[in-house]
Every structure is written in C-alpha cells, then in structure tokens.
Amino acid sequence: MVQTAPLPVSSSASTVRPSAPASKPPPAVPVDDLPAFDIQGFSLWYGSRQALYDVSIRIPARQVTAIIGPSGCGKSTCLRALNRMHELTPGTRIVGSLRLFGDDLYASGIDPAYVRRRVGMVFQKSNPFPTMSIEENVLVGLRLNGVRDRAFLQERLEESLRMSALWDEVKDVLNRPGTSLSGGQQQRLCIARALAVQPEVLLMDEPCSALDPIATAKIEELIQLLRERFTVVIVTHNMQQAARCSDRTAFFYMGKLIEYAATREIFTNPANPQTEAYVSGRFG
C-alpha cells in the first residue's frame, strides 16, 4: 500500500486533520518493503559548486539511518535535500530523482511546503519560537494547517510531548515560554513540535551537537522509541552516536556516497578503505 498521491497544498488545506479517530497511529508504513526514500543519481549544486555527486541510496522505512562523514562532505546537504530545505539557499540546482514512498518529491507542481509536512526536521541548535509558550510551540504546525478542534489539539499536544519524552517534565508549565526550558528540553520540544504534524520521516541534523552528555543520552534514547513509528534519518559528527543508535549508516566523503550498509558492517567490517580509515579515526 502506497501513500495517497501527493497534492500540492495551500496553507489553508488541512491535510493533517484526521478523518479517522485522532488516536490513529502516524501514517501507516507501506506493508511491502517500499523504502522511505529512494534516491537515484542525485547531484546538487550551490551555484557553480557541486556539493553532491550522483548519490543513489535507498533509506528503509521505520529504521534509523545515520549519515556520517567529515565536515563539508555533503551529509547535511543530503539531509536538507530530503525535505527540500536546501532550496532556501538561493542558487541551488539538482538533477536526479528522490522519491518518498514512491512519490517524486521534486516533480513539477509539488509544493516544498507539502514535502516538509511529510518530512519533518530537527536542527543542530534547538530553535523554539521564543514568543510562544511550550504548548503553542508544539501545536504551531497543526494550527498552520487550520486545525482548530480543541480536544484534538489537546490530545495531540500530550501525545507529541510524550513521544518526545518531555511530557512529565512540562505538563504543569505548558504556558511557560518554550525558551524557559533547558537546552536538552528545548531540543526535545523541537522534536515534539516536528512530531505534532505527524510526519512520515523525521530528519535530524546533528541534534545533539550542542548538548551535554546527559541530554544527548536522552535524545538517543528517544530516537530508539521513535523508530517504532517513524523513519529517522540523522546526520551526526559523532561516530559513537551513529554506532549506538542507527540501523544503517551512510558514509559520505567529498560529496560522494562512499559506503552504505548496516551500521554493524560499517563499523566492524567496512568494504571501502576510506570508510575504514574514517571510522577507525585515521582522518576526518
């Protein structure tokens, strides 16, 4: 079963408003083994500088895929191409195809806003909206979609905060500003905000690089929980983190996908000498 065909959405369309009961799990993962992302021959340029070279990769659904590689290797670019965030940088150009559960995300007529509703994102630095309360931060995506049903919003608020393991810490202070939380809590708030619109995929761009080890451990724990319902793609500088919390790992170097395999393979028995050199700490 494939997701329904994509429709370009306007801001007023309430695509996430549930027709079924609100407790319905996030969009069902296809029963056949259709990958979450099927990327073929994908290259990307910033102006005249090529950042990705002919990347082909199939990212499986309901698994955690880590993207590793030295700085400037294109791993963040690749992640941002998955929900077309790179288009915010003027002068980018792509060739190749990128499909999400079979739908071509770069087909003409596809609104990038629509893509980003299906593919959520968490950033390196937590970025809650400072003028909004914790509750408003979580619900802002739904409100943008025109959801007004209070009971439904309330339910989704709790569900999202529970999924991001923040509920118990904030349930009594939901009206406090999002920025009043600690750094790690803010990052989990951002995860809750991304989850509230029930994306099919969650992209994480070095989500722990600004956090201390305890907050990092919490986020990693959380990623393990998320994989039961979502597809997670995480870019990380930290190889131990990739080893700890991912099912599959992709190693990028100089804009090229060098190796992509089960995480254990990459870290214990890499096929490529460059991968071996990187994971064993000889460069990068």
Binding site: S10, P128, L144, A194
Partner: peptide, 28 residues
C-alpha cells in the same frame, strides 16, 4: 536568526506563514 525561519519552513509553513510566526513575532 535564520534558524527561526528554518524552524517554520520545516513545519511546512508557506513564505507568508514563516514571516508571521518566525520573523514578525520574533521581531515585534
């Protein structure tokens, strides 16, 4: 901060929505 704009874009906001929820409210 650009990160504010990106936060809104990543939620599937349109350009105007980004200006409203991320830019204007931050700058008010």
């Amino acid at each position: 901060p650009n990160l504010q704009r990106e936060a809104a874009y990543a939620l599937g906001a349109t350009h105007w929505e980004v200006i409203r929820i991320a830019v204007l409210s931050y700058a008010r």
